[in-house]
Design a protein around this nucleic acid. Structure first.
Length: 550
RNA sequence: CGGGGUGUAGCUCAGCUUGGUAGAGCGCUCGGUUCGGGACCGAGAGGUUCGCAGGUUCAAAUCCUGUCGCCCCGACCA
Protein backbone atom coordinates (compact mmCIF):
# COMPACT_ATOMS: atom_id res chain seq x y z
CA UNK A 1 0.00 0.00 0.00
CA UNK A 2 1.23 3.45 -0.83
CA UNK A 3 2.42 5.25 2.25
CA UNK A 4 0.55 8.33 1.20
CA UNK A 5 -2.59 7.42 -0.68
CA UNK A 6 -3.04 3.97 0.77
CA UNK A 7 -4.46 2.67 -2.41
CA UNK A 8 -2.37 2.95 -5.51
CA UNK A 9 0.67 0.99 -4.67
CA UNK A 10 -0.20 -2.30 -6.18
CA UNK A 11 -1.96 -0.82 -9.10
CA UNK A 12 1.17 1.09 -9.96
CA UNK A 13 3.25 -2.02 -9.60
CA UNK A 14 1.07 -3.78 -12.00
CA UNK A 15 1.35 -0.94 -14.44
CA UNK A 16 5.08 -1.39 -14.31
CA UNK A 17 4.88 -5.02 -15.23
CA UNK A 18 5.21 -4.66 -18.94
CA UNK A 19 7.61 -6.51 -21.10
CA UNK A 20 9.92 -4.96 -23.61
CA UNK A 21 8.00 -6.38 -26.51
CA UNK A 22 4.93 -4.29 -25.83
CA UNK A 23 6.22 -1.40 -23.78
CA UNK A 24 3.78 0.58 -21.73
CA UNK A 25 3.10 3.68 -23.73
CA UNK A 26 1.31 5.26 -20.79
CA UNK A 27 4.15 4.83 -18.34
CA UNK A 28 7.02 7.27 -18.48
CA UNK A 29 10.29 5.30 -18.72
CA UNK A 30 11.58 7.24 -15.73
CA UNK A 31 9.37 5.27 -13.43
CA UNK A 32 11.27 2.12 -14.12
CA UNK A 33 14.50 3.71 -13.09
CA UNK A 34 13.34 4.70 -9.61
CA UNK A 35 12.40 1.15 -8.92
CA UNK A 36 14.76 -1.18 -7.17
CA UNK A 37 14.07 -3.88 -4.66
CA UNK A 38 10.73 -5.20 -5.65
CA UNK A 39 11.48 -8.08 -7.91
CA UNK A 40 8.91 -9.52 -10.14
CA UNK A 41 9.35 -13.20 -10.61
CA UNK A 42 10.57 -14.30 -13.99
CA UNK A 43 7.27 -16.02 -14.50
CA UNK A 44 5.34 -12.83 -14.14
CA UNK A 45 3.43 -12.01 -17.21
CA UNK A 46 3.02 -8.78 -19.04
CA UNK A 47 -0.20 -6.98 -18.39
CA UNK A 48 -0.86 -6.33 -22.01
CA UNK A 49 0.49 -9.30 -23.94
CA UNK A 50 1.01 -12.04 -21.36
CA UNK A 51 4.63 -12.61 -22.35
CA UNK A 52 7.28 -12.96 -19.68
CA UNK A 53 8.37 -9.76 -18.04
CA UNK A 54 12.10 -9.25 -18.28
CA UNK A 55 12.50 -6.17 -16.13
CA UNK A 56 12.44 -5.95 -12.41
CA UNK A 57 11.15 -2.92 -10.62
CA UNK A 58 10.05 -1.82 -7.23
CA UNK A 59 6.63 -1.14 -5.89
CA UNK A 60 6.55 2.58 -5.57
CA UNK A 61 3.35 4.45 -5.82
CA UNK A 62 3.28 6.24 -9.09
CA UNK A 63 1.12 9.09 -7.93
CA UNK A 64 3.29 9.75 -4.89
CA UNK A 65 6.81 8.87 -5.91
CA UNK A 66 8.13 11.31 -3.31
CA UNK A 67 6.58 9.15 -0.60
CA UNK A 68 7.72 5.94 -2.10
CA UNK A 69 7.49 3.08 0.35
CA UNK A 70 9.71 0.14 0.19
CA UNK A 71 7.39 -2.82 0.14
CA UNK A 72 9.40 -4.76 2.62
CA UNK A 73 9.22 -1.94 5.11
CA UNK A 74 5.49 -1.66 4.64
CA UNK A 75 5.02 -5.38 5.04
CA UNK A 76 7.12 -5.36 8.18
CA UNK A 77 4.72 -2.96 9.82
CA UNK A 78 1.91 -5.38 9.11
CA UNK A 79 3.36 -7.73 11.68
CA UNK A 80 1.74 -5.53 14.27
CA UNK A 81 -1.81 -6.01 13.21
CA UNK A 82 -3.67 -5.27 16.38
CA UNK A 83 -5.15 -1.79 16.30
CA UNK A 84 -4.88 0.53 19.31
CA UNK A 85 -7.32 -0.71 21.92
CA UNK A 86 -9.07 2.61 22.26
CA UNK A 87 -9.50 3.01 18.52
CA UNK A 88 -11.50 -0.12 17.90
CA UNK A 89 -12.11 -2.34 20.89
CA UNK A 90 -13.97 -4.93 18.90
CA UNK A 91 -11.22 -5.43 16.35
CA UNK A 92 -8.57 -5.18 19.03
CA UNK A 93 -10.28 -7.94 20.97
CA UNK A 94 -10.59 -10.26 18.00
CA UNK A 95 -6.98 -9.75 16.99
CA UNK A 96 -5.69 -10.35 20.50
CA UNK A 97 -7.65 -13.60 20.71
CA UNK A 98 -6.26 -14.73 17.40
CA UNK A 99 -2.71 -13.46 17.61
CA UNK A 100 -2.04 -14.34 21.22
CA UNK A 101 -3.09 -17.83 20.16
CA UNK A 102 -5.98 -17.98 22.56
CA UNK A 103 -8.64 -18.94 20.06
CA UNK A 104 -9.14 -19.72 16.43
CA UNK A 105 -12.27 -19.99 14.36
CA UNK A 106 -13.61 -23.49 13.82
CA UNK A 107 -15.36 -24.79 10.69
CA UNK A 108 -18.82 -24.15 12.11
CA UNK A 109 -20.00 -20.56 12.36
CA UNK A 110 -19.82 -19.25 15.88
CA UNK A 111 -17.63 -22.03 17.17
CA UNK A 112 -14.07 -21.53 18.29
CA UNK A 113 -11.15 -23.69 19.17
CA UNK A 114 -9.75 -22.89 22.55
CA UNK A 115 -6.04 -23.19 21.89
CA UNK A 116 -3.55 -24.58 24.39
CA UNK A 117 -2.54 -21.18 25.75
CA UNK A 118 -6.13 -20.20 26.51
CA UNK A 119 -6.86 -23.66 27.82
CA UNK A 120 -3.96 -23.33 30.22
CA UNK A 121 -5.46 -20.08 31.51
CA UNK A 122 -8.87 -21.72 31.71
CA UNK A 123 -7.44 -24.60 33.72
CA UNK A 124 -5.95 -22.18 36.22
CA UNK A 125 -9.27 -20.35 36.50
CA UNK A 126 -11.32 -23.51 36.87
CA UNK A 127 -8.95 -24.81 39.51
CA UNK A 128 -9.64 -21.72 41.60
CA UNK A 129 -13.39 -22.15 41.29
CA UNK A 130 -13.28 -25.89 41.78
CA UNK A 131 -11.26 -25.64 44.95
CA UNK A 132 -13.81 -23.26 46.43
CA UNK A 133 -16.77 -25.39 45.36
CA UNK A 134 -15.29 -28.38 47.08
CA UNK A 135 -14.39 -26.40 50.16
CA UNK A 136 -18.09 -25.53 50.49
CA UNK A 137 -19.18 -29.14 50.26
CA UNK A 138 -19.95 -29.57 46.59
CA UNK A 139 -19.07 -32.61 44.53
CA UNK A 140 -18.47 -32.86 40.83
CA UNK A 141 -20.50 -35.14 38.60
CA UNK A 142 -21.33 -35.34 34.95
CA UNK A 143 -24.74 -35.47 33.28
CA UNK A 144 -25.48 -36.28 29.64
CA UNK A 145 -25.28 -33.86 26.76
CA UNK A 146 -28.56 -34.98 25.21
CA UNK A 147 -31.93 -34.23 26.75
CA UNK A 148 -35.21 -35.71 25.47
CA UNK A 149 -37.60 -33.04 24.29
CA UNK A 150 -40.38 -34.27 26.57
CA UNK A 151 -38.13 -33.75 29.56
CA UNK A 152 -36.94 -30.32 28.54
CA UNK A 153 -40.44 -28.94 28.06
CA UNK A 154 -41.65 -29.79 31.55
CA UNK A 155 -40.87 -26.37 32.99
CA UNK A 156 -42.87 -23.99 30.83
CA UNK A 157 -41.11 -20.71 31.51
CA UNK A 158 -37.74 -22.37 31.24
CA UNK A 159 -38.52 -23.83 27.83
CA UNK A 160 -39.94 -20.60 26.56
CA UNK A 161 -36.76 -18.81 27.55
CA UNK A 162 -34.45 -21.25 25.83
CA UNK A 163 -36.52 -22.50 22.90
CA UNK A 164 -35.07 -20.13 20.29
CA UNK A 165 -31.53 -21.21 20.92
CA UNK A 166 -31.78 -24.95 21.40
CA UNK A 167 -30.01 -27.23 18.93
CA UNK A 168 -31.72 -30.54 18.22
CA UNK A 169 -30.52 -34.00 17.29
CA UNK A 170 -33.08 -35.63 15.05
CA UNK A 171 -31.16 -38.53 13.62
CA UNK A 172 -28.93 -41.22 15.03
CA UNK A 173 -27.45 -44.37 13.60
CA UNK A 174 -28.82 -43.45 10.23
CA UNK A 175 -32.40 -43.44 11.50
CA UNK A 176 -34.79 -40.68 12.36
CA UNK A 177 -35.37 -40.54 16.10
CA UNK A 178 -38.88 -41.01 17.43
CA UNK A 179 -38.25 -38.18 19.85
CA UNK A 180 -35.78 -35.47 19.09
CA UNK A 181 -33.03 -34.77 21.59
CA UNK A 182 -31.95 -31.33 22.71
CA UNK A 183 -28.27 -30.62 23.02
CA UNK A 184 -28.28 -29.13 26.50
CA UNK A 185 -28.46 -25.36 26.64
CA UNK A 186 -28.21 -25.90 30.42
CA UNK A 187 -28.90 -28.94 32.54
CA UNK A 188 -31.74 -28.12 34.93
CA UNK A 189 -33.97 -30.61 33.13
CA UNK A 190 -31.80 -33.74 33.24
CA UNK A 191 -30.46 -32.99 36.63
CA UNK A 192 -33.93 -32.28 38.01
CA UNK A 193 -35.13 -35.57 36.67
CA UNK A 194 -32.27 -37.44 38.26
CA UNK A 195 -32.70 -35.61 41.57
CA UNK A 196 -36.33 -36.77 41.64
CA UNK A 197 -35.00 -40.30 41.50
CA UNK A 198 -32.34 -39.82 44.12
CA UNK A 199 -34.13 -37.76 46.73
CA UNK A 200 -36.65 -39.43 49.08
CA UNK A 201 -36.04 -38.06 52.52
CA UNK A 202 -34.85 -34.89 54.22
CA UNK A 203 -31.87 -37.07 55.08
CA UNK A 204 -30.91 -37.02 51.40
CA UNK A 205 -30.66 -33.26 51.48
CA UNK A 206 -28.98 -31.06 50.64
CA UNK A 207 -27.71 -32.34 47.31
CA UNK A 208 -24.74 -30.25 46.29
CA UNK A 209 -23.49 -31.10 42.82
CA UNK A 210 -21.49 -29.23 40.23
CA UNK A 211 -20.57 -30.20 36.71
CA UNK A 212 -17.94 -28.89 34.35
CA UNK A 213 -19.39 -29.21 30.90
CA UNK A 214 -20.03 -27.81 27.48
CA UNK A 215 -23.43 -26.46 26.46
CA UNK A 216 -24.83 -25.26 23.16
CA UNK A 217 -26.93 -22.19 22.56
CA UNK A 218 -27.68 -21.27 18.98
CA UNK A 219 -26.74 -17.62 19.11
CA UNK A 220 -27.13 -15.32 16.16
CA UNK A 221 -24.19 -13.05 16.72
CA UNK A 222 -21.07 -14.64 18.12
CA UNK A 223 -17.65 -13.50 19.35
CA UNK A 224 -14.73 -15.53 20.67
CA UNK A 225 -15.38 -16.48 24.31
CA UNK A 226 -17.95 -13.75 24.86
CA UNK A 227 -20.65 -15.47 22.90
CA UNK A 228 -20.12 -18.74 21.06
CA UNK A 229 -22.52 -21.48 19.97
CA UNK A 230 -20.79 -23.97 22.19
CA UNK A 231 -19.10 -22.92 25.35
CA UNK A 232 -17.41 -24.42 28.36
CA UNK A 233 -18.79 -23.64 31.76
CA UNK A 234 -19.54 -24.91 35.18
CA UNK A 235 -23.09 -25.38 36.40
CA UNK A 236 -23.87 -26.07 40.02
CA UNK A 237 -27.22 -27.60 40.91
CA UNK A 238 -28.34 -27.98 44.47
CA UNK A 239 -31.47 -29.11 46.23
CA UNK A 240 -32.47 -28.09 49.72
CA UNK A 241 -35.18 -28.74 52.29
CA UNK A 242 -35.98 -25.11 52.92
CA UNK A 243 -36.15 -21.88 51.03
CA UNK A 244 -33.82 -20.20 53.50
CA UNK A 245 -31.15 -22.78 52.97
CA UNK A 246 -31.45 -22.49 49.19
CA UNK A 247 -31.27 -18.71 49.43
CA UNK A 248 -28.12 -18.94 51.52
CA UNK A 249 -26.57 -21.27 48.95
CA UNK A 250 -27.28 -18.78 46.18
CA UNK A 251 -25.59 -16.00 48.12
CA UNK A 252 -22.65 -18.17 49.07
CA UNK A 253 -21.93 -19.08 45.44
CA UNK A 254 -22.38 -15.51 44.27
CA UNK A 255 -19.78 -14.48 46.83
CA UNK A 256 -17.39 -17.15 45.56
CA UNK A 257 -17.82 -15.79 42.07
CA UNK A 258 -17.09 -12.28 43.23
CA UNK A 259 -14.06 -13.43 45.15
CA UNK A 260 -12.52 -15.33 42.24
CA UNK A 261 -13.29 -12.54 39.80
CA UNK A 262 -11.62 -9.93 41.96
CA UNK A 263 -8.88 -11.79 43.82
CA UNK A 264 -7.83 -14.13 41.03
CA UNK A 265 -8.78 -12.47 37.76
CA UNK A 266 -8.32 -8.93 39.09
CA UNK A 267 -11.69 -8.18 37.56
CA UNK A 268 -13.71 -5.82 39.73
CA UNK A 269 -17.40 -6.68 39.70
CA UNK A 270 -20.61 -5.48 41.21
CA UNK A 271 -22.94 -8.13 42.46
CA UNK A 272 -26.63 -8.01 43.05
CA UNK A 273 -30.06 -9.18 42.04
CA UNK A 274 -31.37 -9.20 38.47
CA UNK A 275 -34.59 -7.49 37.48
CA UNK A 276 -37.64 -9.47 36.39
CA UNK A 277 -36.77 -8.89 32.75
CA UNK A 278 -33.21 -10.01 33.15
CA UNK A 279 -33.54 -13.03 35.38
CA UNK A 280 -33.03 -16.64 34.32
CA UNK A 281 -35.99 -18.30 32.63
CA UNK A 282 -37.77 -20.29 35.30
CA UNK A 283 -36.03 -18.75 38.31
CA UNK A 284 -37.60 -17.07 41.29
CA UNK A 285 -34.73 -14.66 41.31
CA UNK A 286 -31.30 -14.40 39.75
CA UNK A 287 -28.18 -12.85 41.19
CA UNK A 288 -25.15 -11.94 39.13
CA UNK A 289 -21.73 -10.40 39.07
CA UNK A 290 -21.20 -7.75 36.45
CA UNK A 291 -17.90 -6.34 35.17
CA UNK A 292 -17.51 -3.12 33.24
CA UNK A 293 -15.70 -3.29 29.92
CA UNK A 294 -13.60 -0.48 28.41
CA UNK A 295 -16.31 0.46 25.94
CA UNK A 296 -18.76 1.13 28.74
CA UNK A 297 -20.71 -2.08 28.29
CA UNK A 298 -21.33 -4.42 31.19
CA UNK A 299 -20.39 -8.08 31.05
CA UNK A 300 -22.37 -10.59 33.06
CA UNK A 301 -19.62 -12.78 34.41
CA UNK A 302 -21.49 -15.22 36.61
CA UNK A 303 -25.03 -15.97 37.72
CA UNK A 304 -26.60 -17.65 40.72
CA UNK A 305 -30.28 -18.55 40.64
CA UNK A 306 -32.87 -19.18 43.28
CA UNK A 307 -35.13 -21.58 41.45
CA UNK A 308 -37.65 -21.87 44.25
CA UNK A 309 -39.83 -24.94 43.82
CA UNK A 310 -40.47 -24.35 40.12
CA UNK A 311 -38.19 -27.09 38.92
CA UNK A 312 -39.04 -29.36 41.84
CA UNK A 313 -42.66 -29.22 40.74
CA UNK A 314 -41.86 -29.66 37.06
CA UNK A 315 -39.62 -32.65 37.68
CA UNK A 316 -41.44 -33.94 40.72
CA UNK A 317 -38.55 -33.69 43.14
CA UNK A 318 -40.10 -34.39 46.52
CA UNK A 319 -38.97 -35.55 49.93
CA UNK A 320 -40.51 -36.57 53.18
CA UNK A 321 -39.67 -33.98 55.77
CA UNK A 322 -39.16 -34.53 59.50
CA UNK A 323 -42.82 -33.72 60.02
CA UNK A 324 -43.67 -36.67 57.74
CA UNK A 325 -45.12 -34.34 55.11
CA UNK A 326 -44.19 -34.78 51.44
CA UNK A 327 -42.70 -31.55 50.17
CA UNK A 328 -41.03 -30.20 47.06
CA UNK A 329 -37.35 -29.39 47.40
CA UNK A 330 -35.92 -25.91 46.87
CA UNK A 331 -33.33 -25.84 44.13
CA UNK A 332 -30.60 -23.49 43.02
CA UNK A 333 -28.29 -23.33 40.05
CA UNK A 334 -25.22 -21.20 39.40
CA UNK A 335 -22.78 -20.92 36.56
CA UNK A 336 -19.67 -19.31 35.22
CA UNK A 337 -18.56 -19.75 31.63
CA UNK A 338 -15.45 -19.12 29.60
CA UNK A 339 -17.00 -15.76 28.89
CA UNK A 340 -15.19 -14.57 31.98
CA UNK A 341 -11.99 -15.17 30.05
CA UNK A 342 -13.25 -12.71 27.46
CA UNK A 343 -13.86 -10.20 30.22
CA UNK A 344 -10.36 -10.72 31.49
CA UNK A 345 -8.85 -10.12 28.08
CA UNK A 346 -10.76 -6.89 27.53
CA UNK A 347 -10.34 -5.53 31.01
CA UNK A 348 -6.56 -5.70 31.29
CA UNK A 349 -5.20 -5.74 27.75
CA UNK A 350 -3.46 -2.78 26.14
CA UNK A 351 -2.12 -1.66 22.78
CA UNK A 352 0.59 -4.30 22.95
CA UNK A 353 -1.90 -7.10 23.50
CA UNK A 354 -2.89 -9.31 26.34
CA UNK A 355 -2.09 -8.55 29.98
CA UNK A 356 -2.55 -11.48 32.32
CA UNK A 357 -2.88 -11.33 36.09
CA UNK A 358 -0.10 -13.52 37.55
CA UNK A 359 -2.60 -15.75 39.32
CA UNK A 360 -3.85 -17.23 36.08
CA UNK A 361 -0.88 -16.65 33.76
CA UNK A 362 0.36 -19.97 32.36
CA UNK A 363 3.84 -18.46 32.31
CA UNK A 364 4.25 -15.97 35.12
CA UNK A 365 7.83 -15.32 34.14
CA UNK A 366 9.53 -15.75 30.81
CA UNK A 367 13.31 -15.78 30.71
CA UNK A 368 14.74 -14.50 27.44
CA UNK A 369 18.45 -15.01 26.92
CA UNK A 370 20.11 -12.47 24.65
CA UNK A 371 22.89 -14.35 22.93
CA UNK A 372 25.98 -12.67 21.63
CA UNK A 373 28.70 -14.06 19.49
CA UNK A 374 31.44 -15.36 21.70
CA UNK A 375 29.36 -15.13 24.87
CA UNK A 376 28.83 -18.80 25.54
CA UNK A 377 27.94 -18.25 29.16
CA UNK A 378 24.65 -16.46 28.51
CA UNK A 379 22.48 -19.47 27.73
CA UNK A 380 23.71 -21.57 30.69
CA UNK A 381 23.18 -18.58 32.95
CA UNK A 382 19.63 -18.18 31.67
CA UNK A 383 18.99 -21.85 32.20
CA UNK A 384 20.26 -21.69 35.76
CA UNK A 385 18.17 -18.62 36.47
CA UNK A 386 15.01 -20.22 35.08
CA UNK A 387 15.59 -23.35 37.15
CA UNK A 388 16.05 -21.32 40.27
CA UNK A 389 12.91 -19.22 39.66
CA UNK A 390 10.85 -22.31 39.02
CA UNK A 391 10.87 -22.90 42.73
CA UNK A 392 8.50 -20.01 43.28
CA UNK A 393 6.76 -19.27 40.01
CA UNK A 394 5.62 -20.72 36.70
CA UNK A 395 8.64 -20.01 34.54
CA UNK A 396 9.27 -20.45 30.86
CA UNK A 397 12.72 -20.32 29.31
CA UNK A 398 12.51 -19.11 25.74
CA UNK A 399 15.73 -20.47 24.29
CA UNK A 400 14.51 -20.78 20.72
CA UNK A 401 17.41 -20.18 18.39
CA UNK A 402 15.32 -19.21 15.42
CA UNK A 403 13.91 -16.00 16.86
CA UNK A 404 15.81 -12.92 17.92
CA UNK A 405 15.50 -11.57 21.41
CA UNK A 406 13.56 -8.44 20.41
CA UNK A 407 11.10 -10.61 18.53
CA UNK A 408 10.54 -12.63 21.68
CA UNK A 409 9.98 -9.49 23.76
CA UNK A 410 7.16 -8.50 21.47
CA UNK A 411 5.64 -11.93 21.33
CA UNK A 412 5.54 -12.43 25.09
CA UNK A 413 4.07 -8.99 25.53
CA UNK A 414 1.38 -9.84 23.02
CA UNK A 415 0.67 -12.96 25.00
CA UNK A 416 0.49 -11.12 28.29
CA UNK A 417 3.24 -12.71 30.38
CA UNK A 418 3.41 -10.63 33.60
CA UNK A 419 7.17 -10.61 34.06
CA UNK A 420 9.97 -10.93 31.54
CA UNK A 421 13.55 -11.45 32.56
CA UNK A 422 16.16 -10.48 30.02
CA UNK A 423 19.59 -11.93 30.41
CA UNK A 424 22.39 -10.85 28.10
CA UNK A 425 26.14 -10.67 28.27
CA UNK A 426 25.97 -7.27 29.94
CA UNK A 427 23.79 -8.71 32.72
CA UNK A 428 25.90 -11.80 33.17
CA UNK A 429 29.10 -9.76 33.40
CA UNK A 430 27.58 -7.32 35.89
CA UNK A 431 25.89 -10.10 37.89
CA UNK A 432 22.46 -8.57 37.39
CA UNK A 433 19.24 -9.36 35.58
CA UNK A 434 16.93 -7.03 33.70
CA UNK A 435 13.31 -7.39 34.69
CA UNK A 436 10.45 -6.00 32.61
CA UNK A 437 6.90 -5.90 33.88
CA UNK A 438 3.98 -6.27 31.52
CA UNK A 439 1.44 -4.11 33.31
CA UNK A 440 3.46 -0.90 33.26
CA UNK A 441 5.93 -1.86 30.51
CA UNK A 442 8.74 -0.59 32.73
CA UNK A 443 12.13 -2.19 33.25
CA UNK A 444 14.45 -2.45 36.17
CA UNK A 445 17.85 -3.95 36.86
CA UNK A 446 18.37 -5.99 40.00
CA UNK A 447 21.33 -7.92 41.35
CA UNK A 448 21.28 -11.51 40.23
CA UNK A 449 21.18 -12.74 43.80
CA UNK A 450 18.00 -10.82 44.53
CA UNK A 451 16.17 -11.81 41.37
CA UNK A 452 13.99 -14.49 42.94
CA UNK A 453 12.77 -12.36 45.80
CA UNK A 454 12.18 -9.36 43.60
CA UNK A 455 10.15 -11.34 41.11
CA UNK A 456 8.00 -12.89 43.81
CA UNK A 457 7.25 -9.42 45.13
CA UNK A 458 6.66 -8.12 41.65
CA UNK A 459 4.10 -10.78 40.83
CA UNK A 460 2.09 -9.84 43.90
CA UNK A 461 2.46 -6.19 43.04
CA UNK A 462 1.21 -6.74 39.52
CA UNK A 463 -1.74 -8.80 40.68
CA UNK A 464 -2.81 -6.12 43.12
CA UNK A 465 -2.03 -3.33 40.70
CA UNK A 466 -4.20 -4.73 37.97
CA UNK A 467 -7.18 -4.96 40.27
CA UNK A 468 -6.62 -1.47 41.62
CA UNK A 469 -6.27 -0.04 38.14
CA UNK A 470 -9.38 -1.79 36.88
CA UNK A 471 -11.34 -0.77 39.93
CA UNK A 472 -10.31 2.86 39.67
CA UNK A 473 -11.29 2.81 36.04
CA UNK A 474 -14.64 1.22 36.80
CA UNK A 475 -15.36 3.69 39.58
CA UNK A 476 -14.42 6.61 37.38
CA UNK A 477 -16.97 5.43 34.88
CA UNK A 478 -19.75 4.84 37.34
CA UNK A 479 -22.10 7.79 37.53
CA UNK A 480 -24.86 8.43 40.03
CA UNK A 481 -28.02 9.93 38.56
CA UNK A 482 -31.08 11.06 40.48
CA UNK A 483 -33.28 12.89 38.00
CA UNK A 484 -34.63 12.18 34.57
CA UNK A 485 -32.37 14.53 32.64
CA UNK A 486 -29.07 13.45 34.18
CA UNK A 487 -30.14 9.81 34.03
CA UNK A 488 -30.82 9.94 30.30
CA UNK A 489 -27.72 11.99 29.60
CA UNK A 490 -25.55 9.56 31.53
CA UNK A 491 -26.99 6.53 29.78
CA UNK A 492 -26.68 8.06 26.37
CA UNK A 493 -23.05 8.94 27.02
CA UNK A 494 -22.46 5.19 27.37
CA UNK A 495 -19.43 5.62 29.55
CA UNK A 496 -20.22 2.95 32.07
CA UNK A 497 -22.55 2.17 34.94
CA UNK A 498 -25.30 4.57 35.81
CA UNK A 499 -26.56 4.14 39.35
CA UNK A 500 -30.04 5.44 39.99
CA UNK A 501 -33.15 5.02 42.08
CA UNK A 502 -35.62 2.85 40.20
CA UNK A 503 -39.28 1.89 40.44
CA UNK A 504 -38.56 -1.75 39.53
CA UNK A 505 -41.37 -1.71 36.99
CA UNK A 506 -40.68 -4.04 34.04
CA UNK A 507 -42.40 -1.69 31.61
CA UNK A 508 -40.24 1.19 32.78
CA UNK A 509 -37.11 -0.89 32.15
CA UNK A 510 -38.26 -1.75 28.63
CA UNK A 511 -38.85 1.90 27.88
CA UNK A 512 -35.39 2.80 29.17
CA UNK A 513 -33.98 0.14 26.90
CA UNK A 514 -35.93 1.42 23.92
CA UNK A 515 -34.64 4.94 24.48
CA UNK A 516 -31.04 4.28 25.45
CA UNK A 517 -30.16 0.66 24.74
CA UNK A 518 -29.36 0.16 28.41
CA UNK A 519 -30.99 -2.14 30.92
CA UNK A 520 -30.59 -2.80 34.62
CA UNK A 521 -27.57 -4.93 35.28
CA UNK A 522 -28.06 -5.50 38.96
CA UNK A 523 -30.22 -4.20 41.75
CA UNK A 524 -28.39 -3.22 44.91
CA UNK A 525 -30.74 -3.08 47.87
CA UNK A 526 -33.46 -0.54 48.47
CA UNK A 527 -33.76 3.08 47.46
CA UNK A 528 -33.38 6.02 49.78
CA UNK A 529 -36.70 6.82 51.38
CA UNK A 530 -38.69 9.32 49.40
CA UNK A 531 -36.63 8.87 46.26
CA UNK A 532 -38.42 8.62 42.96
CA UNK A 533 -37.51 6.61 39.89
CA UNK A 534 -34.90 8.47 37.89
CA UNK A 535 -36.67 7.61 34.68
CA UNK A 536 -40.43 7.55 35.20
CA UNK A 537 -40.81 9.45 38.46
CA UNK A 538 -42.85 6.82 40.25
CA UNK A 539 -41.75 6.05 43.83
CA UNK A 540 -38.40 4.27 43.71
CA UNK A 541 -38.17 0.85 45.31
CA UNK A 542 -34.55 0.04 44.70
CA UNK A 543 -31.16 1.34 43.62
CA UNK A 544 -30.17 -0.13 40.27
CA UNK A 545 -27.09 -0.22 38.10
CA UNK A 546 -27.85 0.48 34.46
CA UNK A 547 -25.66 -0.11 31.42
CA UNK A 548 -25.67 -1.50 27.95
CA UNK A 549 -24.44 -5.04 27.95
CA UNK A 550 -22.65 -7.74 26.06
C1' C B 1 -33.65 -11.45 11.87
C1' G B 2 -32.02 -6.53 9.38
C1' G B 3 -27.54 -3.78 7.42
C1' G B 4 -22.50 -3.93 5.57
C1' G B 5 -18.16 -6.53 4.00
C1' U B 6 -15.58 -10.60 2.08
C1' G B 7 -14.15 -15.46 -0.28
C1' U B 8 -7.31 -16.04 -4.98
C1' A B 9 -0.59 -19.67 -1.57
C1' G B 10 -0.20 -21.30 5.58
C1' C B 11 -1.43 -15.58 6.70
C1' U B 12 -2.52 -10.45 4.87
C1' C B 13 -3.91 -9.13 0.25
C1' A B 14 -3.18 -7.50 -5.30
C1' G B 15 -5.00 -8.89 -10.08
C1' C B 16 -11.36 -8.21 -12.10
C1' U B 17 -13.16 -1.79 -14.38
C1' U B 18 -10.72 -2.78 -20.15
C1' G B 19 -11.38 -11.60 -20.54
C1' G B 20 -5.54 -14.09 -22.95
C1' U B 21 -4.60 -19.14 -18.59
C1' A B 22 -1.44 -17.09 -11.12
C1' G B 23 1.26 -12.53 -8.32
C1' A B 24 3.51 -9.67 -3.83
C1' G B 25 4.84 -9.28 1.27
C1' C B 26 5.03 -12.14 5.50
C1' G B 27 5.48 -17.15 6.95
C1' C B 28 7.72 -22.01 5.71
C1' U B 29 12.33 -25.32 4.08
C1' C B 30 17.83 -25.60 3.43
C1' G B 31 22.71 -23.13 4.14
C1' G B 32 25.32 -19.14 6.41
C1' U B 33 25.93 -14.63 9.29
C1' U B 34 23.18 -12.57 13.53
C1' C B 35 20.50 -11.27 18.43
C1' G B 36 19.79 -5.22 24.41
C1' G B 37 12.66 -3.72 21.00
C1' G B 38 9.53 -7.64 15.61
C1' A B 39 17.75 -9.09 11.94
C1' C B 40 20.14 -10.11 7.16
C1' C B 41 22.19 -12.72 2.76
C1' G B 42 21.73 -16.77 -0.66
C1' A B 43 18.95 -20.89 -2.52
C1' G B 44 14.08 -23.23 -2.61
C1' A B 45 9.07 -25.37 -1.90
C1' G B 46 4.14 -23.98 -2.04
C1' G B 47 -2.34 -22.63 -5.70
C1' U B 48 -5.88 -30.35 -7.20
C1' U B 49 -6.25 -22.70 -11.25
C1' C B 50 -8.88 -18.22 -7.91
C1' G B 51 -15.74 -20.63 -2.26
C1' C B 52 -19.34 -23.75 -5.19
C1' A B 53 -22.72 -24.55 -9.53
C1' G B 54 -24.40 -23.05 -14.07
C1' G B 55 -24.03 -19.58 -18.34
C1' U B 56 -21.61 -16.24 -22.23
C1' U B 57 -16.90 -16.78 -25.12
C1' C B 58 -12.00 -19.44 -29.43
C1' A B 59 -10.55 -18.16 -24.33
C1' A B 60 -13.15 -16.64 -17.55
C1' A B 61 -9.87 -15.33 -11.22
C1' U B 62 -11.88 -11.40 -14.46
C1' C B 63 -18.40 -10.73 -17.54
C1' C B 64 -23.77 -12.76 -16.25
C1' U B 65 -27.08 -15.81 -13.01
C1' G B 66 -27.68 -18.60 -8.84
C1' U B 67 -25.88 -20.60 -4.38
C1' C B 68 -22.97 -21.45 0.08
C1' G B 69 -19.52 -20.00 3.82
C1' C B 70 -17.24 -16.57 6.95
C1' C B 71 -16.44 -11.74 9.39
C1' C B 72 -18.27 -7.02 11.31
C1' C B 73 -22.35 -3.64 13.04
C1' G B 74 -27.45 -3.44 15.06
C1' A B 75 -32.57 -6.27 17.59
C1' C B 76 -32.35 -11.43 21.57
C1' C B 77 -28.82 -14.26 25.38
C1' A B 78 -23.87 -16.84 29.98
Amino acid sequence: MCGSCCFNRVRSIRRLAFCTISPPSTIPPAIGSICGGYRRKARASCSSCARQTPDACEGFCRTHPENAVNMKEAAKKEVQRIPPKAADLSEWYTQVCLQAQLADYAPVRGCIVMRPYAYAIWELITAEFDRRFKATGHQNAYFPLLIPESLLVREAEHVEGFAPEVAWVTEGGGERLTERLAIRPTSEAVIGMMYAKWIQSHRDLPVLINQWANVVRWEKATRPFLRTLEFLWQEGHTAHATREEAAAEVQQMLEIYREVAEDVLALPVISGRKSENEKFAGALSTYAIEALMPDGKALQAGTSHELGQNFARAYDITFTDVDEQTKHVWTTSWGVSWRILGGLIMAHGDDNGLVLPPAIAPHQVVVVPIPRKGADDVLPAARALADELRGSARVHLDDRAEQTAPWKFNEWELRGVPVRVELGKRDVDAQVVTIARRDTLSRETVPRAEAGARITALLAEIQAGLLARARADRDARTIVARDHASFLAALRAQQGFVVAPWCEDAACELEIKAQTGAVTRVIKGGAESGASCAFCGKPAKVTAYFARSY
